[in-house]
């Protein structure tokens, strides 16, 4: 997994609530048996005017110029500004894979769906919850300023705006540790192998049908 420490990145706004994982990566792309290559199909149904299927040459497709991420000013964006309940719906980890492959490293929203939120951390993506009013402020500031960038510092748990405003954020200590160091969860868990084995013996003695 990619480490995340700090980032000074271009911000792209996605101003709608309840963006679900079907919208982030439509189901036809879930047929892949790989983990990578989903970026060109992130938000496929919003981003292109024609219907996308796996294996298509996306550079030849009809671009929806009205979709925000297609605007020239947002090319190269690494921070996605979003609204409440981002990532709801299906548990597909293809959603964070697609966002990460597209180039995003940070998503800021007032709230996230649980499974999506979890999945982000496993893939070097940092989801940040801010107060709805703060997110509103950022949407306004972004709209008023071309090439709007935010500086995200995971160690310090802060977002710093160009005008110097600092937005502190919360992050779970364990997840922060893993993200900062790019640690593989499985390796960490296997350090407790003996405890797991001991638990298992006890657990199955009490419920032998398991």
């Amino acid at each position: 997994m990619n480490k995340f420490t700090r980032l000074n990145g271009l911000v792209a706004p996605l101003d709608r609530a309840n963006v679900d994982t079907d919208a982030i990566i439509p189901k036809q792309f879930l047929k892949s048996i790989k983990r990578s290559g989903f970026g060109p199909n992130a938000f496929d149904e919003w981003r292109y005017l024609d219907h996308g299927e796996p294996g298509m040459d996306n550079s030849k497709r009809l671009i929806n110029k009205d979709f925000v991420l297609n605007q020239p000013r947002y090319q190269g964006a690494q921070i996605l500004l979003a609204r409440e309940n981002f990532g709801c719906g299906s548990s597909r980890e293809h959603a964070p894979w697609a966002l990460e492959d597209y180039g995003f490293r940070v998503i800021i929203a007032p709230s996230f769906a649980d499974i999506f939120f979890n999945n982000c951390f496993k893939n070097g993506l940092l989801p940040i919850r801010l107060e709805a009013a703060q997110v509103d402020e950022l949407f306004k500031a972004e709209a008023d300023n071309a090439a709007y960038k935010l500086a995200v510092d995971l160690e310090a748990q802060t977002i710093t705006a160009p005008d110097g405003t600092v937005y502190p954020f919360e992050v779970d200590a364990f997840r922060k540790h893993c993200l900062l160091n790019g640690l593989d969860d499985i390796g960490l868990t296997l350090q407790h192998m003996d405890e797991i084995a001991a638990f298992e013996v006890k657990h199955r003695a009490a419920q032998p049908w398991l």
Binding site: S90, S91, E93, I115, N118, N119, K122, D185, I186, M193
Partner: peptide, 29 residues
Amino acid sequence: GDSHTSTHGAFAALAHGIGTSEVEHVMAT
């Protein structure tokens, strides 16, 4: 690895959907 795993809670089980990284994690650990 499916969000509707919540279905199985009908049996007084603790059941929930997980992502693919977690699928691998549960397989391995």
